[in-house]
Design a protein around this nucleic acid. Structure first.
Lengths: 213, 213
DNA sequence: AATGTCATCACCCGATTGCGGTAGCGTAAA
DNA sequence: TTTACGCTACCGCAATCGGGTGATGACATT
């Protein structure tokens, strides 16, 4: 039977050893490394050849988030399960951005730890409902500012704006849309008025940031 | 004892009734409405005054995603738990964008349904590990295109680019950065070269889309 | 000491854009 | 039918921008 190889990065000695024994004491799991910091990260990874890395997000020296970035870059196949004490939005956000595959709290039960490790190994992203909610919130706030942006742009105006965002000049836009240069200019004037801007860069900026395009 | 009020939107009669009896048959839960479609959505919501809406993502007429948008806008306090048959990335992405609070599969056990409803009601976002993984993937791909964008911009150039994105003209940028108009222009030329663009709009577009700013 | 990079400033020319105004045409709503 | 709106098109003028060239000093590297 194959065993899921787990590497542990956790600066707290007690927790690290507890996790070590938990992993090694569970059928189907092997702890191939338990480290107090992520110095010589690549060396440690090459040594332990883990399938799953259990990474403490708060660590002295290189923090867990930096470590995740490196791991994901150098060992794309390795799943990283972040563990943390706090429900810290910034950390969650950064960890998710860095490429963490799961996010659990240190208050998780031993059985929960094992389940989570198994889940990330099988391509899942275990996280508590409350953490998932924060991820969704972050998603909706940071990624989809959406906002109540209704500038009443006509289809033509949106089309022109899209072309502008692509970096096209008025002349080029006139060409691709089969209109005259002057016509495009007229539309642009109307767009400026509707968006309350007064330059092409401002229009592009607003269009992108408010996802009008 | 207060009961969690649940409204069900599900076009499949069998599943709808099963869910109805499941919810009503569980202590602490009351189904205040079970509907086959989301026509007259607002009326149905006012009628049933739910705490949690269980929404089928595939529905005839107005689909679940449109419904979620309306619910979140008109009833911000109502949590929406999406249910679906498939692991469809687009649907997941759209539902998350629309403001769904959780995402479960219809293959979930009755106990799983109840747990999920309880979780969203308590501010969590229940989702299976595999769905969470997809959300994270979407997050990392769509939101953080990140990419290998290293254009070697100097701090000054980044600063100018930021101002440009804000809609400032070269002249205005020269003013706020305490430089000369000509200096800004020189920097811009260098920025164009580094970004491989040849207009201010293109630079703004690239800066925003590749998150250089 | 020599080299290279960066930031700064300057001038020129031609092209593009911003701004204001005018106007015809078709469609849909009032 | 009148009105409103979107799309089309044009003109002129002032301002800005893109491209090119050149130059200086600061600073770090070699």
């Amino acid at each position: 039977m194959i065993s899921i190889k787990v590497a542990i990065f956790e600066d707290n000695k007690h927790l690290r050893e507890s996790l070590y024994y938990l992993v090694n004491g569970t059928d189907g799991f092997t702890c191939t490394g338990a480290f107090a910091d992520s110095n010589d990260l690549l060396f440690k990874l090459k040594r332990s050849q883990p399938d799953v890395v259990l990474m403490d997000i708060e660590m002295p020296g290189m923090n867990g988030i930096e470590a995740v970035k490196i791991i994901r870059k150098q060992f794309p196949g390795v799943q990283v399960l972040m563990q943390t004490i706090f429900h810290d939005d910034d950390n969650i956000f950064n960890a998710v951005c860095a490429g963490a595959s799961g996010y659990i709290l240190k208050t998780t039960s031993p059985a929960g730890y094992i389940d989570a490790i198994k889940d990330v190994y099988n391509g899942g992203s275990p996280m508590t409902g409350s953490i998932a909610r924060r991820v969704l919130d972050l998603f909706q706030k940071n990624i989809i500012p959406a906002g109540n942006n209704d500038y009443q742009l006509t289809p033509k105006e949106k089309e022109i704006l899209q072309q502008l965002v692509k970096g096209k000049s008025f002349k080029m836009i006139a060409d691709v849309l089969g209109s005259t240069y002057e016509t495009i200019r007229t539309h642009m004037k109307n767009i400026y008025t509707k968006l309350h801007v007064n330059s092409n860069t401002e229009a592009v900026s607003k269009a992108l940031q408010e996802k009008i395009v």
